[in-house]
């Protein structure tokens, strides 16, 4: 499994590129974080990688085949999307919500059967929420919903999952729960592209990092080398300090000039 974006450009309006000249490579079992300020093009990049949008120039390939040349259902069988958690209108059960991931494997007039429900049970087991299967999706927590969406990606049969800000709106503990599941699945061979606002999560959970600034990738590489003060300043437009914990773990903290009269 190898997902490659090769010098892609995308614009919603002609002449105003949201993505310009972005490249990245995702290999099996890897977790790639996409970092960047609000409006830097992270979600658009994810859409291009998912095949929901087609870049105007450049190409996105899955094992050498362009996504635009794959049938939608074949593409969906290889690349899954885990969207940001939202409030659903209808109170599907967790099981029913995950079951929708079987769509690429079912025809227009066919209905899911025993095998599909078995896949749902395995996926819920894999993300550790088997006991939630019959609960209404509207009545579980945000973190649990994120796990439901990951499970949906798994039943889709995709080896590669694209996650849009899975840590948004979650406390540190729940962020860890989600990203821990991501690491575990990566160790089983799944690969992930994760957009994030948290450089520290990238330091903790990523194998690779891509920084986006104004739609262009400014740097890509392993987190230890890619996340430095210069790249952070370029990406977010403010100063950061990198500190080192007693166990050697690195962390990013914003450098803020002391408030007048604070001390």
């Amino acid at each position: 499994m190898r997902l490659v974006a090769d010098r892609i450009h995308y614009a919603y309006r002609p002449g105003r590129d949201v993505l310009s000249d972005v490249s990245l490579t995702l290999d099996e079992g890897r977790v790639l974080f996409v970092l960047g300020a609000n409006g830097s093009g992270k979600t658009t990049l994810l859409d291009c990688l998912a095949g929901v949008r087609t870049p105007h120039t450049g190409r996105v390939t899955m094992d050498g085949t362009r996504l635009s040349e794959l049938k939608p259902r074949n593409r969906a069988g290889r690349i899954g999307v885990v969207p940001q958690v939202h409030e659903p209108v209808f109170s599907y059960t967790v099981g029913e919500a995950v079951l929708m991931g079987r769509a690429p494997h079912l025809g227009l007039f066919s209905h899911p059967g025993k095998d599909d429900w078995a896949a749902v049970a395995r996926a819920l087991e894999a993300v550790g929420i088997a006991e939630l299967r019959t609960r209404p999706y509207t009545q579980i927590s945000g973190g649990e919903r994120q796990l439901v969406l990951i499970a949906r990606g798994l039943v889709q049969g995709a080896g590669c999952l694209l996650m849009d800000e899975p840590a948004a709106h979650l406390d540190p503990h729940h962020q860890h729960d989600i990203l821990h599941v991501v690491r575990q699945l990566a160790s089983e061979g799944y690969s992930f592209v994760v957009t994030s606002h948290h450089p520290n999560n990238a330091l903790l959970y990523a194998n690779g990092v891509v920084f986006l600034a104004d739609g262009a990738s400014i740097v890509a590489g392993p987190p230890d080398t890619a996340i430095d003060e210069g790249n952070l300043r370029a990406a977010y437009g403010m100063d950061f300090e990198i500190v080192r914990g007693v166990d050697g773990a690195r962390a990013v903290i914003p450098r803020i000039s002391p408030q007048p009269g604070a001390s």
């Binding site: 859409d47 998912a50 095949g51 929901v52 049938k71 939608p72 259902r73 074949n74 593409r75 969906a76 069988g77 690349i79 899954g80 999307v81 969207p83 939202h86 659903p88 209108v89 209808f90 929708m100 991931g101 769509a103 690429p104 889709q156």
Partner: peptide, 13 residues
């Protein structure tokens, strides 16, 4: 009932 991009990502036309 899913958002458009979500359904598209599931391979649904």
């Amino acid at each position: 009932t899913l958002a458009d991009p979500e359904a598209t990502a599931l391979g649904v036309r």
